[in-house]
Design a protein around this nucleic acid. Structure first.
Lengths: 195, 195
DNA sequence: CGAACTATGATAACAGTGTCAACATTGCAT
DNA sequence: ATGCAATGTTGACACTGTTATCATAGTTCG
């Protein structure tokens, strides 16, 4: 039976898993790319590299856990934006801008999410990750205009997601310089009026 | 003075630089991610790992060269699509679909381009890379509808690029399954009619 | 309370990587 | 022919992720 409360000694760390995730998160937050080394991380934690293997089967699993945390933050951010902005055209615009802004402010976390997500089936619990992504999708879908067929709404949601995702990526990759005005203009240009 | 024609011996390879680029390209083409190892590549070339350092200052430079080649292919593909499809709304649709399709068919090359491009200032010739990107942009811009102000055309081009780039990325990252019909519908939904 | 068990840590080692310094071989030019 | 520059090789260093083995401490139970 696992202990309810963590133990803390000079030898035993206390709650290494949580500490590793927190420090990993801090390290990634202050980067542009999610470059995380197991040994380097362990060093900063004052612990041997192999100690982490008691809490994660391998490096990928650790990164997956961090990606899940990052995705949770992004999803919550989007959900809040969708709530604040309401639905309809205006809602979509604000939600879209929020997506790009979060990506610009958290480049490495944003990258981590989409770098890790394709390997989810192997290392991480696909249910959790799927749920987190459903929440993200829900935030976007909630901002779609009404008076559309279900299929049209789906296509519109994919269109919207693609637009802001691509814009964020192009900014992060240095292809277009970040300019809030430009972002707004680009998102505003989207119009879901039926042809 | 460097020799005009390559030499070829058991000891001297002949044209290692070209061979490395070609084999690197082949290796990446058959992958989903541009994972390239210097030593592994050298092994397959039947040459010692350090021999590559006579032709590239480091691994990043090699990857940059490959990225430049990949970008050239993508740019040519887009230019041809723009030429074939003509301008206007229909042109944009076809050019956009071409972009996504190329990305799906060359996932690792597509990734390589945007993974490497931000480090261009350091290792690779920024002019070449910039030129190749300008060509790509030109292909997209050529498909923008006329009768817009210059600024509107710029915004529209960014909008279009973001849309197809994001759609391609989401497909490559396994977030939406590739379906040509869905891609077409998503791109077609774009409408640049002035509000 | 003491002994066994489990959870968690540390060390040593292996294979792999990118990279550098030193040395070897070849072709070209004077 | 000799010397130089281009090119390739070997050996080493520091680093990485990972595993096997051993050490320590907290928990549980007779």
């Amino acid at each position: 039976m696992p202990p309810i409360l963590p133990m803390s000694t000079a030898y035993h760390h206390g709650d290494l898993r949580a500490a590793a995730l927190q420090m990993g998160m801090e390290r990634i937050e202050n980067q542009d790319h999610p470059d995380l080394g197991l040994r380097a991380l362990a060093r900063d934690l004052g612990v041997s590299a192999t100690a982490l293997y008691r809490h994660f089967p391998n490096k990928d699993a650790l990164l997956d856990a961090l990606a899940l945390e990052a995705l949770g933050r992004l999803g919550a951010n989007q959900a809040k934006a969708a709530r604040d902005a309401g639905g309809g055209r205006n809602g979509f615009i604000e939600v879209g801008i929020t997506y790009v802004t979060w990506a610009v402010e958290n480049p490495a976390l944003f990258r981590l999410i989409y770098t890790r997500v394709e390997k989810v089936d192997f290392d991480c619990d696909p249910t959790e990750m799927g749920e987190a992504f459903n929440q993200l999708r829900a935030g976007i879908a909630a901002s779609m205009p009404e008076g559309m067929s279900a299929e049209q709404r789906n296509v519109a949601a994919l269109h919207a997601w693609s637009l802001v995702h691509g814009l964020a990526m192009l900014i992060l990759d240095g292809q277009v310089e970040y300019d809030p005005e430009m972002v707004r203009k680009t998102v505003v240009m989207t119009d879901f009026r039926p042809a």
